[in-house]
């Protein structure tokens, strides 16, 4: 078994561009609703997902369509309902658990890190946990130190789960649909700051395969590697760099686990330079991992040491100007690309 039903990933994906512009949150809702219509084992559970219509309006209207037995409000008990998802998914259901914020997943760490990714192994292959945990990751906008977690650095250290992190509505829908049908547990990282972003989402059904990066922009001078919201910072930086005659590849990784190192190396062979842009803190981050793999596998192609742009290595600040500077923003990316080209 690999997926809850047969999905043909060999089909080419529909066009990334078009005029059916919907919000990121609507794309997530479409993905969940379509999968819930197809498979009655799938249900949504979390804080404020039902009667409140979603703390961030992601599940708006879903209670009306699916009823309170499939769109289930919980009290503020992340450890409890994450653990219920473990039991329910072992039993054979396909839970989608919404964390209002991944910051709150820390109180469920025992369930999501000790049980979810290890169950298959410690049961000798008898039971896995095919569930999706999803929610807002990263700085939400002046939410302070405890509510602005980027969990991908911390959680990707653990084997046994997959991690998807979309940067736009098209990917949000296609990756979430794949996450729901995948037989492995998936941590799905969204961003409060992108939920209102609009983008083309095709009317036809599609599933984006995990582990295949999307080359969002092409250039020969440097490879920008990113995932999630910072992909958009990279695209902004690339536009400015172009004005100065610097052209970069922007690789949107789409998933961190699996990680499409092949695409990074392919691009690196062309550019000779790589800058990894990651919203985690730098120490033992996903950027550290990407750079390590690049050094292990493609060292000879590097014309400059790999560089990383992370959030500043401090707790997330509240003040607007401090938070803006804290993030791996356009200015830092431009500086890093120029440094890699000795153009500073």
């Amino acid at each position: 078994m690999a997926y809850s039903r047969s999905v043909d990933f060999s089909q080419p994906l529909p066009s990334f561009t078009g005029d059916r512009a919907i919000q990121f949150r609507e794309a997530l809702r479409e993905a969940m609703s379509e999968e819930m219509r197809r498979d009655d084992r799938v249900f949504l559970m979390g804080e404020e997902v039902a009667y409140y219509q979603g703390a961030y309006k992601i599940s708006q209207g879903m209670l009306d369509e699916f009823g309170p037995q499939r769109v289930i409000d919980t009290p503020i008990s992340e450890n409890g309902f994450a653990g219920m998802a473990v039991g329910a998914s072992m039993y054979g259901l396909r839970p989608i658990i919404e964390f209002m914020s991944w910051s709150f997943s820390l109180v469920a760490a025992d369930q999501i890190l000790n049980n979810v990714p290890k169950m298959l192994y410690m049961s000798g292959g008898q039971w896995g946990c095919p569930c999706v945990f999803r929610g807002n990751d990263g700085a939400g906008g002046q939410l302070g130190s405890t509510h602005s977690w980027c969990v991908e650095g911390l959680y990707s250290n653990v084997p046994g789960m997959k991690i998807a992190i979309p940067s736009n509505p098209y990917d949000a829908k296609g990756l979430l649909k794949t996450a729901i049908v995948d037989d492995d547990p998936v941590f799905f990282l969204e961003s409060e700051r992108m939920l209102s972003d609009k983008g083309h989402v095709p009317a036809e059904e599609y599933y984006i395969p995990f582990g295949k990066a999307h080359l969002r922009r092409e250039g020969n001078d440097c490879t920008l590697v990113s995932f999630g919201r910072p992909v958009n910072f990279c695209l902004e930086a690339a536009q400015e760099l172009e004005k100065e005659g610097i052209n970069v590849d922007v690789l949107d990784m789409r998933t961190i686990k699996p990680l499409d190192t092949e695409s990074i190396i392919r691009s690196l062979k062309k550019t000779g330079r790589v800058v990894v842009v990651d919203q985690c803190w730098p120490f033992a981050s996903v950027a550290s991992e990407v750079i390590t793999q690049v050094c292990e596998r493609a060292f000879d192609y590097l014309d400059h040491q790999p560089l990383r742009v992370n959030s500043d290595d401090v707790p997330s600040p509240y003040a607007k100007n401090l938070e803006a500077e804290f993030l791996p923003h356009k200015g830092k990316i431009i500086k890093a690309v120029k440094a890699s080209l000795h153009k500073l």
Binding site: D40, F43, Q69, R70, N79, G80, F81, A82, G83, M84, A85, V86, G87, A88, S89, M90, Y91, G92, L93, D110, Q111, N114, N115
Partner: peptide, 19 residues
Amino acid sequence: AQTPLGAGLAFAAKYEVEV
């Protein structure tokens, strides 16, 4: 750690019947 699992297992069985 198994206590929420116990709830999840019974929840799933109930979900089979009711949903």
